Computed example of a mutant assay.
Amino acid sequence: MDSDVIVVGGGVVGLTTAVTLAERGLRVRVWSRDPAEATTSAVAGALWWPYRIEPAEEAGGWALESLRVYGELAAAPEETGVRWVPGVHADTVLEGLGAWAAGVEGLRRLPPGEVPGPYTTGLAARLPLIDMPVHLAWLRGRLEAAGGSVERRAVRRWEEPAAAAPVVVNCTGLAARELVPDAGVRPVRGQLVLVENPGIEEWFTAADAGSAETTYFFPQPGRLVLGGTAEEGAEAPAPDPVVAAAIVARCARVRPEIAGARVLGHRVGLRPSRAGGVRIASEPLPGGGLLVHHYGHGGAGVTVAWGCARRAAELVTG
Rank of each mutant, 00 (worst) to 15 (best):
residue 13 V to M: 13
residue 13 V to D: 03
residue 14 G to V: 06
residue 14 G to S: 11
residue 14 G to I: 05
residue 16 T to H: 03
residue 17 T to A: 12
residue 18 A to M: 04
residue 19 V to A: 03
residue 23 E to D: 12
residue 23 E to R: 04
residue 24 R to Y: 05
residue 28 V to F: 06
residue 28 V to T: 04
residue 29 R to Q: 14
residue 31 W to C: 02
residue 32 S to V: 04
residue 33 R to N: 12
residue 33 R to W: 11
residue 33 R to K: 13
residue 33 R to S: 12
residue 34 D to N: 12
residue 34 D to V: 09
residue 36 A to T: 00
residue 37 E to R: 15
residue 42 A to Q: 11
residue 43 V to A: 04
residue 43 V to F: 05
residue 46 A to D: 01
residue 48 W to D: 04
residue 48 W to C: 10
residue 48 W to V: 02
residue 48 W to A: 05
residue 49 W to I: 09
residue 49 W to G: 07
residue 50 P to C: 12
residue 50 P to H: 13
residue 52 R to V: 07
residue 52 R to G: 03
residue 54 E to N: 02
residue 54 E to H: 02
residue 57 E to L: 13
residue 60 G to L: 00
residue 62 W to C: 09
residue 62 W to F: 10
residue 63 A to V: 02
residue 64 L to S: 10
residue 64 L to F: 12
residue 64 L to M: 08
residue 65 E to R: 15
residue 65 E to K: 14
residue 66 S to W: 04
residue 67 L to I: 13
residue 71 G to F: 03
residue 72 E to C: 11
residue 72 E to S: 15
residue 73 L to K: 11
residue 74 A to F: 11
residue 75 A to W: 08
residue 75 A to V: 08
residue 76 A to G: 09
residue 76 A to P: 08
residue 77 P to C: 06
residue 77 P to Y: 04
residue 77 P to R: 02
residue 78 E to F: 09
residue 78 E to N: 14
residue 79 E to G: 07
residue 80 T to D: 01
residue 80 T to G: 07
residue 81 G to N: 03
residue 82 V to K: 01
residue 82 V to S: 01
residue 83 R to N: 07
residue 83 R to G: 01
residue 83 R to W: 09
residue 88 V to D: 14
residue 90 A to H: 07
residue 92 T to H: 13
residue 97 L to F: 03
residue 97 L to V: 04
residue 97 L to H: 00
residue 98 G to T: 03
residue 98 G to K: 02
residue 99 A to R: 15
residue 100 W to N: 05
residue 100 W to I: 03
residue 100 W to A: 00
residue 102 A to L: 09
residue 102 A to D: 15
residue 103 G to L: 15
residue 104 V to T: 12
residue 106 G to I: 06
residue 107 L to W: 07
residue 107 L to P: 05
residue 108 R to Y: 12
residue 112 P to V: 13
residue 114 E to G: 13
residue 114 E to D: 13
residue 115 V to F: 08
residue 119 Y to C: 12
residue 119 Y to R: 08
residue 119 Y to W: 14
residue 122 G to T: 10
residue 123 L to V: 06
residue 124 A to C: 10
residue 125 A to L: 07
residue 125 A to G: 06
residue 125 A to W: 15
residue 126 R to S: 11
residue 133 P to V: 05
residue 134 V to A: 11
residue 135 H to S: 01
residue 135 H to Y: 00
residue 135 H to A: 00
residue 137 A to H: 03
residue 137 A to Y: 00
